[in-house]
Structure formats: C-alpha cells, structure tokens
Amino acid sequence: MLDLAIFIQNLANGLLIGGVYALIGVGLTLVFGVMRTINFAHGDFVVLGMYGAVLFDLVFGFDPYLSLLIALPVAFVVGMVVERAILAPIADAPAESSLLATLGLSLIIGNLLLLTFGGEPRSVQVPYASDTVRIGEVNLSVVLLAAGAATTAMIGALYWFLERTERGRAVRATAENRLGAELVGIDTRRVQSFVFGMGTALAVTAGVTLIPLLFATPTFTGAIFTLKAFVVTVLGGLGRVGAAIGGGLLLGVVEVLGASYFLSEYRDAYGLLAFLLVLLLRPEGLFGKTVKRV
C-alpha cells in the first residue's frame, strides 16, 4: 500500500537532495553557457569542497558550514586562476580541447587528493547528524534541511547577482551573444574567468553541504558528481540556469522515489536512464526551447 506520509517524506528528501544537485548543476551550466566548455572537473571541485571541510574539521574542529568562510573565496580565486592558465589559451581551439583539458584537470585533482589524504573514505561527524524535525507525519533530517537552506540561499544570491547587478548583466550578455557583448564594451575574457571562478565556488559549496551526509573518496566520488551534474544540466537543457534547478530537483526526486518504490540497487541508474532518454529524444532539454536546426 502506498503510504501517503512516507511518500511525502520521500518527496521532501528528494527535493532537498535535489537542491544540492541543482547547486552542482547550476555551476556546470553557467560555465557551459558562457564559455561553451563542458567542465569534466566540476565534480572534482565538489570533492575538493568536501575535503576542504574535512581538513577544516581536522585542524579547527568547527562546523563544516563555517569552513565556507575560507573555502568560498579560495575556490573563487582557484577557479579564476585555472581559467586563466588552462582554458583561456585554448578558447579558440575545437570544443573537444577544453573537454580534454578539464578531464586532465579532474585526474590531477583526484590523484593529488589521493596522495594527500589516502584512499579511505572520509567524512565529518556533526553533532546534529541524526537529529530530525517532525512536521505532522513527516520526519526531516536536520542535515538535509541545512543543505536545502544553504542551496536556496546560494541560488537566491546567484539570481540576485545575475538579474540585479551590472556585472551579472555582463555575464548574461556574454552567454547570449559573445560578439555582441564585446561590441558594447564588455571585457568577455574577464567575464569568463569570473564565471569559472563562480562555478568553482558553487561546486565547493555543494561539497561542503554534502560532507555531513556522504563519504568522500578522492577519485571516484568526483566522477559520480560530474556525471550527476551532466544529468542535471542535460535534463534541463545545457546553458540555462533555471532549467538546471528544475533538472536538479527532478533528479533528486527520481532517485529517491525510484530507489524506494522500485529496485534500490539501481538508484544511480534511474538518473542515467532519464539522462539518456532526454539526450536521445530532446537534446535541447526538458525545459529547453525547441530550436529548428539548420
């Protein structure tokens, strides 16, 4: 029998974890929209955030969320430096070059983490790990709620930035038409570094919010998150921020509901199958505009 309370609880959990997926996907889609780069290292930046929180916990012993105070600016600068040093020089090369370069970056980050922290899974124990909040019949975990609050805040801030600030307008203009943006005096190269920095910072934030929930391993977790980020962005349509949020929430719900009502071993496969179907049937994404290709 389909229990309504359990269904609502699963739905809520799916939406909360989907929020984190959305945060990861938004970073990837923003970078793709502005730079036309498929960032294979995106998931590794998430893992970098997880290990940053682990390191913060080892050194200071404070809550992982406090580590964002250091992690966010550091991630932003690292992202800008990476863009300047690696991606800017090959901006005019075929699209594959940047894909391969970020794939190389992903291998470097993963293996350096492996050398530093070793291969065993790591996590951060927070005192409120098993606390729940009860709303009616539904129990929600505090960790998930905190992650949901953090992602909502980040995405809200991103929206405010993109819609309400001069620099945000420059980012949108570059994404829409790079040449046009240059013609009205926007330094698109600076916008690109800036956006890659933002993408990295978003990924690292997602990693920090996930560390009380999940274990981090140096090489494999990164690949999983990159894959999830692809799923999220392709579900929504590459290059569109709003669509990535929808895609993230959808993936979270599909995974949790699929795992609880069908075969739980195939939890990761549901997202991939949805991804393949969308890729084959609607490459422009579920929420994308249908464009006639010439």
Partner: peptide, 22 residues
C-alpha cells in the same frame, strides 16, 4: 612513487598535449 595515484601522469600529460601539442 605514486602508488595508486598513477593516473596523475595522464592528467598532466593531457594538459601538456592540449596546450602545446594538440
């Protein structure tokens, strides 16, 4: 030297190839 982190060399080399010898 690098134990199981042997894919590091692939990462470094692919960057070098993409940037300098496509």
């Amino acid at each position: 030297t690098f134990a199981e982190a042997n894919l590091l060399i692939y990462g470094v080399l692919i960057l070098v190839i993409v940037l300098f010898a496509p």
